[in-house]
Amino acid sequence: MALAALKPLVRRHAEIGIFLIAALLVLWFSASSDGRWANFYNLASVLQVTATLGLMSLGVALVIGTGEIDISVGSTFGMGALVYLWLALRVDPALAMLAAVAVGAAIGAFNGLLITRTGTPSLIITLGSLMIFRGIAIALTEGFSFSIPYGDRSGATYWALGGGDLLGINTALVWLVVILVVLTVTLKMTPFGNRLLAVGGSASSAHSRGVRVDRIKLAAFVLSGVLAAFSGTLEAGKLGFADGSMGRLMELQAIASCVLGGCLLAGGRISLIGALVGAFVLSSIQSYLVVMGVKPQWFMLLLGIIVVAAAYGDRRLRNWSVTR
């Protein structure tokens, strides 16, 4: 059987499921939307959403790789956006981006230190920091939004930080591709990547071989915070404004992207490219619902149903791959 020959490939590459799902959805959406979904303008906007959600998902995937979870990224995203918008006009957009990233790193360090020093589960710590930093964002903005007037958003830095297009596609996508390549190389080809996956595979075994488990976990949380805040910066650069609720529920989409993309929540097995395709699938579904004129109040429900169906399909594929 020709199909049976594919089994080892599917077994080794957990992300194949999401590639297949993405291909099927693209075909379905293109065929059923009368050109409203599959046109350049709409796809460019899907890719912009994929870029910001994808950057966040990459960070979450690294944390999942160590066997932990980070659900604070939605708030970190919002904090990054607000810090960038607040400082970009007052100081300088490049420095504002660095400040936003520094805030993200600080939130990641806050999570990572609490988790590794106290041994408290990351789920509860990052749930707490999700609320803490959302609370700070809401308190800081006092119900208003931070914005940069359109006329002030000129110059190469604004353009590069999500405020402009390259060949018609938002510059955030360039960042995404570059960061994907850097992180993939880091994960597969450096001692740090080897140790990160070892920690997720068996923290006690990694420890017994001399790996500083706590430092690796801390580094993963810091990277996750940095990527979420940077992603918030790019989103703020595109929109030009943000309020305290910026990035709400994005953490759940990021985790869904990772799991759909073949990242094992138990740790040790992640696919960065898979997480990105997961983010692409989620943003495609959202945009399909928009162009098909589905009322926004149904989004959550439909998105949820499609995610569950996709996860189930992926599970079936995985099980099939291990049968004889």
């Binding site: 001692p191 140790r195 997720g200 990694a206 071989r209």
Partner: peptide, 24 residues
């Protein structure tokens, strides 16, 4: 040579062999 720990199932033999002291 530990009894219950020392190898990470998710990594290759080569990667386990050098875990913590990887040649670069």
């Amino acid at each position: 040579i530990q009894q219950s720990v020392g190898l990470c199932d998710n990594l290759s033999i080569a990667r386990n062999f050098y875990l913590g002291r990887e040649p670069v």
